[in-house]
């Protein structure tokens, strides 16, 4: 058992070391500046309930955006100088935003993991899976991982150069969920526009909500509820929230 672990570690180490060389040789894409559209499909175990939603991931330098088109809500994170993650929630229909302080996200260490915002899947999850296939094709190179975490059977098709999930599937006793990459955007202009649009919204500091209770927008958002922490990504190695729950 020990030998297997060491072998797996060496393989992982070798692949990590070899990535930059491969990237320089065959792919010069800037993984920090891109857009990715996903279709997320959740089917209940009894096949009676099928839910399909769209999701967009955008990266622009030190910022990451998660766009939920159906909910008309966007969340943008940036890293602070102290290494914390700072979220701003944009309400795309109302053209309003609420700015949170870095410490305000009450969540597990995984939720504070920049990787999860950046690439939707934590390295911890990938580490727990087995690489079953590698299709080398320049920037489109795909690594396929598979395995079981808790009660979930997971398959991940991973694009190492763009650090994007191409396909993700999780099957567990309650549901079958899949995320499929439908579109990649590399146009710096289009990417910047996504962030610029949101920055033009009227924003309110989280701490000032109480002084603006009569603002119809704030009266409305409490009824709208909140984007759940598990709504954009498939997360950690502890099994939550890989079950496809989508609380809005």
């Amino acid at each position: 058992m020990k030998k297997i672990v060491i072998a797996w570690f060496n393989l992982l180490l070798m692949s990590v070391i070899s990535f930059p060389l491969l990237a320089q040789e065959v792919c010069s894409v800037d993984a920090d500046t891109l857009g990715a559209h996903y279709t997320r499909k959740i089917i209940s175990a009894d096949q009676k309930n099928v839910q399909e939603v769209q999701f967009e991931l955008w990266r622009n330098g030190g910022q990451v955006a998660h766009v939920h088109p159906q909910d008309k809500i966007t969340e943008i994170w940036n890293k602070t100088a102290s290494g914390q993650i700072r979220p701003v929630r944009y309400f795309d229909q109302d053209l309003r935003a609420i700015e949170y302080a870095p410490d305000d996200i009450q969540a597990s260490a995984d939720m504070l993991d920049w990787q999860i915002k950046y690439q939707l899947v934590s390295a911890k999850v990938i580490d727990k899976l087995k690489k079953i296939e590698e299709k080398n094709n320049g920037c489109a190179t795909v690594h396929v991982y598979s395995g079981r975490i808790g009660t979930s059977e997971i398959i991940i098709e991973w694009l190492p150069y763009t650090k994007l999930v191409k396909y993700f599937s999780v099957k567990n006793p309650s549901s079958n969920e899949s995320w499929t990459l439908t579109k990649q955007i590399m146009s710096a202009e289009k990417i910047a526009a996504v962030f610029r649009l949101r920055e033009s919204y009227q924003s309110t500091d989280y701490a000032d909500i109480g002084d603006n209770e009569t603002d119809p927008f704030f009266q409305k958002i409490i009824k709208l509820g909140f984007i759940s922490h598990g709504a954009s990504g498939f997360y950690d190695d502890m099994g939550h929230p890989l079950d496809g729950d989508h609380h809005h």
Partner: peptide, 18 residues
Amino acid sequence: FRDLGNETDSDASYDDPA
């Protein structure tokens, strides 16, 4: 209600519903 243990930022709860 929130039980955030030793959190010292009073605003740490705004990200969750009432």
